[in-house]
Design a protein around this nucleic acid. Structure first.
Lengths: 145, 145
DNA sequence: TAAGATTGATCGGTCAATCTTG
DNA sequence: CAAGATTGACCGATCAATCTTA
């Protein structure tokens, strides 16, 4: 179910938007920032991606004009990923269709009790994953280290 | 949750088996056959894959000695994918660890009621996907067409 | 021609190595 | 040297085109 649903949602998104699902995730994360920009490492952590994956993906998206890289924040060895006007336009156009697809393929088919149950299950499994981290996974920030 | 769980299970499998998750799926499908062989098109349908994906994957697995291609079944334009002794050995070695991982990351964390609910949700969503097929998806066989 | 299957180009993702700056 | 990030090589997946035979 997991695999087939993922494939279907990705196809529906690609069909009416020229964005892949990973593209969509990156744009959502960036447009959630007040200034539409974020450090690559932080962005990777938010998405649960490896840093190299993010870097490759940003390169491809930059080639298509959806985002751009900015050198020289306050830390001279770092960079910033910035969403472009074109990127904002792309996600604005794509979001309603994607939300519709999720509704159509999942939300509309399940009862309120099932949706609650699914949310609880997801939270439990995610907590389990966090409790047993992989060697290279960054632990994510803690309130009191 | 879906994405992170998938990534974790794939990593756990790769860590202790030299098999990727797609490798595992192919070997399971083949070893489920009484004679360990299957037509590529049928195999693709069983897995929900495109035929070209299966073909590429079988090529890589054949290069590693896990399966082999046989020309000339009863239909001269077709072929058969056959699991090798090495392939059987690989899946036999990998299966217990994978089952353990699924248990550890999912089954053990959920209550019996949650597992029932998850099964029902999965069945509903899958039925929804089948009810709204993509153009190129093969309909899968019916009892009474 | 249509069905069965494979191939080539290209995008997506991981791992290990590398480059630059604190 | 360690942290931030990128690069290159290679496996994985999709799309469109192709090859062969019923």
């Amino acid at each position: 179910m997991q695999m087939q649903l993922t494939a279907r949602l990705a196809r529906a998104l690609a069909d009416d938007s020229d964005l892949s699902y990973p593209d969509y995730e990156v744009l959502v994360a960036l447009t959630d920032q007040p200034d539409g920009r974020q450090r690559p490492g932080e962005l990777a952590r938010m998405l649960g991606w490896e840093k190299s994956r993010l870097s490759h993906h940003v390169s491809r998206m930059a080639r298509r004009g959806l985002v751009s890289r900015v050198r020289c924040p306050s830390d001279q060895r770092g960079s910033l990923v910035v969403v472009t006007d074109e990127g904002v336009a792309a996600i604005t156009a794509a979001a309603p269709g994607h939300v519709d697809a999720v509704r159509r393929y999942v939300v509309d088919l399940l009862s309120p009790a099932e949706l609650d149950s699914l949310a609880a299950i997801s939270a439990t499994v995610l907590a389990g994953l966090r409790a047993d981290p992989c060697p290279d996974d960054e632990p994510a920030e803690e309130g009191a280290p």
